[in-house]
Amino acid sequence: MTRTLAALPGAARRLCLSRRNGEICTREDGHRGLHHRTGGRLLWSDLQADPPECAAAGTPAEAAPLLDDGFPGGRSVCPVCWAFVDRDGDGLIEPHDSWRGDESRGEADRRREWFNAYGW
């Protein structure tokens, strides 16, 4: 199953966000044939794609610093997929799907603001 980035106003095209070995497909959503990175040096089929679940679940993480409006609301930045994710009561990253794009333009704007303020 190919996962896609939400349709964002002003976006020129929607990308296929299938992953293999952590690399994200750079073809357009709904493409035929193999997934690949730009340049075609890494090719894969849906059967060879990474599972949607991120491998970082269960690792220790600190809550990310907050923007003035409270974003990201106590979540941590996943060190593997760069998603903002919840932590359990012991401060461990909860199971989550790998980050595959923001759900909305607003989330994308807040995410960009956070990374501009605090870096990678």
Results as ranks from 00 to 15, higher is better:
Met1Ala: 12
Ala6Tyr: 06
Leu5Trp: 14
Asp29Arg: 11
Gly70Ile: 00
Pro79Ile: 09
Asp88Gly: 09
Asp68Gln: 06
Thr4Glu: 15
Leu47Thr: 10
Gly70Phe: 01
Arg3Phe: 15
His36Phe: 05
Tyr118Met: 00
Arg19Ala: 06
Arg112Tyr: 13
Ala12Arg: 06
Arg41Gly: 06
Ala12Asn: 01
Arg13Ser: 13
Arg111Trp: 10
Asp97Ile: 09
Glu53Ile: 05
Thr26Pro: 02
Pro72Ser: 01
Glu94Gln: 15
Pro9Ser: 10
Ala108Arg: 15
Trp44Ile: 04
Arg13Trp: 09
Thr59Gln: 13
Pro95Glu: 09
Gly74Ile: 02
Asn116Asp: 12
Glu107Leu: 14
Gly10Leu: 11
Ala117Glu: 12
Gly58Thr: 05
Pro9Tyr: 03
His96Val: 03
Ile93Ala: 03
Trp99Thr: 03
Val77Trp: 00
Gly39Ser: 04
Leu34Arg: 14
Ala64His: 00
Arg87Leu: 15
Thr2Gly: 08
Cys54Tyr: 14
Thr38His: 07
Gly22Thr: 10
Arg19Leu: 05
Phe84Arg: 05
Ala12Glu: 08
Ile93His: 01
Leu42Pro: 03
Ser98Met: 14
Arg75Thr: 11
Ala117Gln: 13
Gly10Thr: 08
Leu15Tyr: 15
Ser104Trp: 00
Ala11Tyr: 09
Pro65Cys: 00
Gly119Asp: 03
Gly40Ala: 14
Gly10Tyr: 11
Glu62Pro: 00
Leu17Ser: 03
Ser45Tyr: 07
Asp88Arg: 10
Arg41Ile: 11
Ala49Cys: 06
Leu8Gln: 14
Gln48Ala: 15
Glu113Tyr: 06
Asp90Gly: 13
Gly73Asp: 13
Pro60Asp: 02
Gly40Asp: 10
Glu103His: 06
Pro60Met: 04
Ala57Asp: 07
Arg19Lys: 11
Arg110Cys: 09
Asn21Pro: 00
Asp29Gln: 13
Ala64Val: 01
Trp44Ser: 09
Ala83Thr: 02
Asp46Pro: 03
His36Met: 07
Asp50Pro: 04
Asp109Gly: 06
Ala11Pro: 08
Pro79Ala: 09
Cys54Ile: 09
Ala57Trp: 05
Ala83Trp: 02
Pro52Cys: 03
Ala6Asp: 08
Arg75Ser: 07
Pro9His: 07
Ser18Gly: 10
Arg37Gln: 10
Pro60His: 03
Trp114Asp: 04
Asp86Phe: 00
Glu62Ile: 00
Arg41Glu: 08
Ala83Tyr: 02
Ala49Ile: 04
Gly119Thr: 02
Gly119Arg: 07
Ile93Val: 13
Asp86Ala: 13
Gln48Asn: 07
Leu43Cys: 05
Asp69His: 07
His36Cys: 11
Gly33Pro: 03
Arg87Lys: 09
Pro9Ile: 08
Ala61Thr: 01
Val77Arg: 12
Arg111Ala: 14
Asp90Ile: 04
Val80Met: 06
Asp68Lys: 02
Phe84Pro: 04
Leu92Gly: 05
His96Met: 05
Thr59Asp: 03
Gly101Glu: 10
Val77Gly: 01
Arg13Asn: 08
Arg105Phe: 09
Ala56Pro: 04
Ala11Glu: 15
Asp50Arg: 02
Phe71Trp: 11
His35Lys: 04
Trp99Arg: 13
Arg111Ser: 15
Asp90Arg: 15
Arg14Asn: 12
Gly119Pro: 00
Asn116Arg: 14
Gly89Tyr: 04
Ser98Ala: 15
Ile24Pro: 02
